[in-house]
Design a protein around this nucleic acid. Structure first.
Lengths: 230, 230
DNA sequence: ACATTCCATTGATCTATCTCAATAATGTGA
DNA sequence: TCACATTATTGAGATAGATCAATGGAATGT
C-alpha cells in the first residue's frame, strides 16, 4: 500500500514555482502545515469520482491520469506530471470529485487541506487571480478536446493526442509512452483496437516510428495535416 | 442594426440577484458606470470566436447560444437566458473569445467593462468565490456534456438535450423550442437529418409529442431510460 | 523455468451515423 | 397574394468505427 512520508518544507519545493509563486513565505508555511506526502504505485487510485474531495493534490513525481468514468468506458481528461496540481471543480460546488485520478508511473503527491487553499484564495488576490487563470486555461483546453473528440475522425484524434503527449507530457520527440493502448484510446475516445490500428496506419505511412512503447514523430507536417483534416 | 439604449440602474436590475448579490452598493455602482445595453435580433452575433473580449455580457432578455466553430460544423456549448451572464475563459488568458455567441430570440444584453469586473474580483473575496463557483459549475456541466457526446448514441444524446431544454431553458413541459433543428443537432453533436429522425422516432414511440416547434415529454421515465442506456 | 495473467495485435463482421439528393412545408418581402 | 428563400422531412446509399473472436507477446510470481 501507500506509505506516508515526512518530506521537506514547501519553501524548498519545486511546486513553489507554479501557482504558489504568488504566496508569501507565511502563506506558504500555512500550506506546509496542512500537508502530507503519499507515494503511489502504477495503477493505484489517487481518488475516485464521486468521493469527497477534502484536499487538493500536488504532483511532485511521476505521472497520473485524470479520467471520467462514463457509460461503460473511461474518458481521460488529462495527464498530470510534476510540477502540477489537481484541483477538481467539485471543491467549490459540493465537495465531490467529478473525475477519478490514478497513477500511471510511480508517483508522489502532496495532499493539502482544501480549506487552507480556500482561505488563501480569499486573502490573497494575486493567488486568486492566478487560480482563475488556471481554471480558464483548463476550460480552453477542454474546448479543444471536445472539438477534437466530436468533430474529427480517428486519425485526427490520434494525431492530436500524439502532439499532446510530445509537447505537454514527455517534452521530447522520440518519446516512450508509459500509458497503455487502452489509455491512448480513452484519450482519443475510441476503442483500443481502433487506436492500435490507427497507430499502425500512421506507422505504415512513414509518419510515425513505433517500436513497442517508443513513438517518434517522423513527419510532423503530415501529422499536423491529419490533425487539421479531421 | 443594434440600437444602444440607456437603461435603468444596476441596483434595480434583476441581474443583481445572481452573482452580483455579493457586491456592495458602491461596487454595483461601479459596474453600472462602465455598462451599456444592446438589443439583438434573432440570428445576430453578440461576439465572434477569436475576437478580443473587452467586456462580459449579462443577458437581461431573450435567448442566446454559445457555440464553438469547429471543423465544418458548430458545437453549441450552452444556451443562455436571463438572468445569466457570459464570461469566456479567454478573459483571464489572452483576452480572446474561445466561442461565439448569437441571439436566438430577440435579445437584450448589458456589456460591462471587463477591467471593472477583474478589479472587483480582486477586492471582494465573496464575489471572487462566487465567480469561482460559477466557473466550477460550468466545468462540471461541460464534463456531463462531453460524456454524453462521446459515449452515448443519438437517442441518448437527444434525450439529454431535451431534458436540458425543459429543465434549464424553458422550464415547463410542453415547451416551444425557438432553436432550429440544426441547433438541436449542434447541441447533440450530430447532423440535422439525424436529429430530425431521432425526434420522429421518439414521437412514433409515444415518448414525445412533437407539433411543429412545440415539444412535450409524455413518457419521462422512458426518456430517462434512453438517456441512461446511451 | 514454467504457468498465469495481462496487454497488444490482427481479421472479419456488423451497425450507427453521415452524406447526398429530392421533396415538402413554412415563412418573408414586394 | 404570389414568388422566393429558408428550413424541415424523408429515403437510399456509403462508411467510419465498434464489437467479437482468436492469437501472439511480454511481464510477473512461484
Amino acid at each position: 500500500m501507500n506509505k506516508m512520508q515526512e518530506s521537506e518544507n514547501c519553501k524548498n519545493c519545486s511546486c513553489k514555482t507554479s501557482i504558489f509563486s504568488s504566496l508569501t513565505p507565511d502563506e506558504l508555511e500555512q500550506i506546509n502545515q496542512g500537508r502530507y506526502t503519499v507515494n503511489y504505485k502504477p495503477g493505484e487510485i489517487l481518488f475516485k469520482q464521486g468521493t469527497p474531495s477534502p484536499h487538493f493534490v500536488c504532483l511532485t513525481k511521476g505521472l497520473a491520469k485524470l479520467y471520467i468514468e462514463g457509460y461503460g468506458k473511461n474518458l481521460i481528461l488529462a495527464l498530470v506530471k510534476p510540477v502540477d496540481y489537481i484541483f477538481g471543480p467539485g471543491t467549490y460546488v459540493d465537495n465531490r470529485h467529478y473525475y477519478s485520478a490514478a497513477a500511471v508511473d510511480e508517483t508522489t503527491a502532496c495532499l493539502v487541506d482544501v480549506n487552507i487553499f480556500k482561505k488563501l484564495i480569499r486573502q490573497n488576490p494575486d493567488f486568486a487571480e492566478e487560480f482563475i487563470q488556471r481554471l480558464s486555461r483548463q476550460a480552453i483546453f477542454n474546448f479543444d478536446q471536445v472539438i477534437s473528440l466530436t468533430q474529427k475522425q480517428m486519425p485526427g484524434r490520434i494525431a492530436d493526442v500524439l502532439f499532446y503527449l510530445r509537447e505537454k507530457i514527455y517534452g521530447k520527440n522520440p518519446f516512450e509512452i508509459s500509458i497503455s493502448r487502452q489509455d491512448l484510446a480513452d484519450l482519443s475516445g475510441m476503442s483500443k483496437e481502433s487506436s492500435i490500428r490507427i497507430l499502425k496506419e500512421l506507422k505504415d505511412e512513414g509518419i510515425l516510428k513505433v517500436t513497442g512503447n517508443t513513438v517518434e514523430i517522423l513527419n510532423e507536417k503530415q501529422l499536423r495535416q491529419i490533425s487539421q483534416t479531421g
